[in-house]
Amino acid sequence: MPSRDNIVTFHDIPTPVGEQPYVPGAGPSPVVTVVDPDPDWPLQYAELAARVRDALGWRVLELQHIGSTSVPGLAAKPIIDMDLVVADADDEAAYVPALEAAGFELRVREPWWFGHRVLRHTDPACGLHVFGPDAPEPIKHRIFRDWLRGNPGERDLYARAKRAAAAASTSAGEHSMQYNARKEQVVREICRRAFTAAGLLDGSS
């Protein structure tokens, strides 16, 4: 279980010298498209979650729909983001082959950032983020999601930030990681308010 400090800290861990997060042949998406909310997104998550659970069985310690497609009424990139917690994210042999057989493809390997891996599924489009039990990110993602679900003003603030970032990145010919950087300040401001409401921060941080 991650500590309180780990949950509320934004861990900007640089890529180690000589390493790179993308597996050979992979890279950030060159297309940044934010669309109106789609009522089918929860159904797509349910389909993808069933595939993951069928593939891994009891090795799924936690599986959550996270990201903008998990918030009703929120504009988003049309990609279902999911957090998967397994016993050891660095033990790829324990879960990657089974997920590949279910139609997922390993795209990102970041053992220096809480063991993070990302697998992609194309239909429905999905980014499956894999972490170990001690990673704070799944908890952080869940708090952010639930805060947006319960606070329409924050949801709308985030939607405006997303659309502005997407327009700026598209105009500049940037990729998805640069889009993420453009909206990062707003994400962190919203997270701090959510952490405070949850009692993880005292409001003066």
Rank of each mutant, 00 (worst) to 15 (best):
P72V: 09
A49Q: 05
A102G: 06
T33L: 14
V60E: 02
Y22N: 03
S176L: 09
E110H: 14
C126H: 09
V60P: 11
T33S: 13
E105P: 04
R149Q: 08
T69L: 09
G67L: 08
L56P: 04
H65F: 11
E137N: 12
E184S: 15
H11D: 14
N180T: 10
K183W: 07
A164I: 11
I7Y: 10
P97G: 07
V35S: 15
N151R: 14
A166H: 06
C126D: 02
T170Y: 03
D83C: 06
A102D: 06
V118H: 07
N151S: 09
A159G: 11
V52R: 00
L99T: 00
Q178M: 10
S169A: 15
Q64G: 06
N6H: 15
R4S: 14
M1C: 03
V60C: 14
I7D: 13
P124M: 07
E19V: 04
G153K: 12
V85H: 01
R117M: 14
Y158E: 00
D91H: 14
A89C: 02
A93V: 09
P72K: 07
I80Y: 03
N180F: 05
L74E: 00
E174H: 08
T122G: 13
L84I: 04
V71I: 09
I190Q: 05
Q20C: 06
P2T: 11
E92N: 10
Q20K: 15
F104P: 00
K162H: 12
M82V: 05
A98I: 01
V8K: 01
D81A: 01
R120G: 02
A98C: 10
L148N: 03
E137T: 14
P14G: 11
S70A: 15
A50E: 15
V35I: 12
V187A: 11
S29G: 06
R4E: 12
G57F: 04
N180V: 04
Q64C: 07
V187K: 05
A194K: 05
S68G: 12
F114W: 12
V86R: 00
Y158T: 00
A194M: 08
G203M: 12
D88S: 07
E137P: 05
A93D: 11
E110F: 09
F114T: 01
S171P: 07
D88T: 10
A55I: 02
R117F: 06
P133N: 04
A168C: 10
R107F: 01
E154P: 01
A197Q: 14
R53D: 08
L201V: 12
A101C: 07
N6K: 12
K140L: 08
A172D: 04
P21V: 08
R193E: 08
A194N: 05
L43P: 00
N151L: 04
G57H: 06
V118Y: 01
I13G: 05
N6Q: 15
I66R: 04
A75I: 07
K140A: 14
K162V: 02
Y95H: 06
D123H: 11
P28V: 00
M82H: 03
